[in-house]
Amino acid sequence: MEGSFGSDFAGSGGGKLDPGLIMEQVKVQIAVANAQELLQRMTDKCFRKCIGKPGGSLDNSEQKCIAMCMDRYMDAWNTVSRAYNSRLQRERANM
């Protein structure tokens, strides 16, 4: 079992784990997971905001609303991230 785990990551490395390779892969997986998380929450929020009664197709105004909503959601994400970060800095300075 350990052998297969090692070879999954290191390929021809003879079961030896390459920490650099693991770090790269973990970073990619984290980035993907974060993008999915953002996408899922954003889709949910913008569906609620923009789709009143689902009609036969996505009409023009709904498309515009969704596009705008997605941009604003990402603005909001960045604002929250900045605010949280500055709060952490302040807390650290007070310690």
């Binding site: 998380e37 953002l38 929020k45 705008m68 909001a76 994400w77 949280y84």
Partner: peptide
């Protein structure tokens, strides 16, 4: 936590998404 707070605060702070925040 940023994901979680964005979602929560979105409900409280966002009325109708406009052309800019």
């Amino acid at each position: 936590l940023v994901h979680q707070m964005t979602e929560l605060c979105w409900e409280k702070c966002m009325d109708k998404p406009g052309p800019k925040l």
